[in-house]
Amino acid sequence: AVNHGVSPELLRRARSSWRGFFRQPAEVRERYANSPATYEGYGSRLGTTKGGHLDWGDYYFLHLLPPSIKSHDKWPSLPSTLRDATEEYGEQVVKLCRRVSKVLSKGLGLDGGRLQAAFGGEGGEGACMRVNFYPRCPQPELTLGVAAHSDPGGMTMLLVDDHVRGLQVKKDGQWITVDPVPDAFIVNVGDQIQGAEQRGV
């Protein structure tokens, strides 16, 4: 998605703020560690084995919607720009998701608000954010950033690093590397919308 209305300046600010968080000392990052009771917070999968290549990455997960479960207390306070940048970025990406949802609905031959309604209607839907950070690995041939997976939700707006060709998608049994487009979002249709499409909603 290009010409999406989220300003390049905001994208740079959000990226820079989160890089600043992941570059904090481990004891600072660990203050926000997630727990078995919640996915929200900081986590690390450095060296996690899954029978093949090792996972190699840190992440941060937080809720944006609904407001009843959104807690700024779980958002990092360092660097000082992070909370404001994340708040603005989250609001803009949620608006973009709503617009894309209407386009998808119409593309499926449905009323423009059909998918939005299925996810709770405007203001009633859930939205979360996951930030992935991949530190340099001394043996990159042994690792993957994130293993092959599908996204369980309705839709993912993926903002990739403009300079790294790491993302791959599987089409017709072949893995295809996605060339990054500066300041563009990659729209992943998640399992819930894909399942709805197959059922004919």
Score class of each variant (00 low, 15 high):
Thr49Val: 10
Leu64Phe: 09
Leu158Met: 03
Asp191Phe: 10
Trp75Ala: 01
Gly109Ser: 09
Ala14Asp: 09
Arg23Gly: 05
His163Asn: 09
Val201Arg: 12
Pro182Glu: 09
His53Ser: 15
Lys50Leu: 13
Val169Phe: 08
Arg15Leu: 10
Pro135Ser: 08
Ser150Ile: 06
Leu54Lys: 01
Tyr60Ile: 05
Gln192Trp: 09
Pro138Ser: 08
Gln116His: 04
Gly109Cys: 05
Val2Lys: 09
Tyr134Arg: 03
Arg136Ala: 13
Ala127Glu: 03
Gly52Arg: 14
Ala147Phe: 06
Arg45Gln: 13
Lys170Met: 14
Asp151Leu: 00
Ser150Asp: 04
Gly173Met: 02
Val131Phe: 00
Arg15Ala: 12
Asp161Gln: 02
Arg15Trp: 11
Val146Glu: 02
Val189Asp: 03
Arg23Cys: 08
Phe133Ile: 05
Glu27Pro: 04
Gly166Val: 04
Arg15His: 10
His4Glu: 05
Ala148Lys: 12
Leu64Trp: 07
Leu142Ala: 03
Arg99Glu: 13
Leu65Ala: 15
Tyr134Gly: 01
Gln198Lys: 14
Arg114Met: 05
Leu65Gln: 12
Glu87Cys: 08
Arg31Glu: 14
Asp151Asn: 01
Thr38Tyr: 08
Gln174Ser: 12
Gly51Gln: 05
Gly107His: 03
Val28His: 11
Ile193Tyr: 05
Glu40Phe: 10
Arg199Gly: 07
Val160Ala: 11
Ile193Gly: 00
Arg29Tyr: 08
Leu10Glu: 01
Leu54His: 00
Trp175Val: 09
His72Glu: 13
Pro25His: 04
Gln192Asn: 08
Ser77Gly: 06
Arg19Met: 14
Pro8Ala: 11
Asp111Glu: 11
Gly43Met: 08
Met155Asn: 00
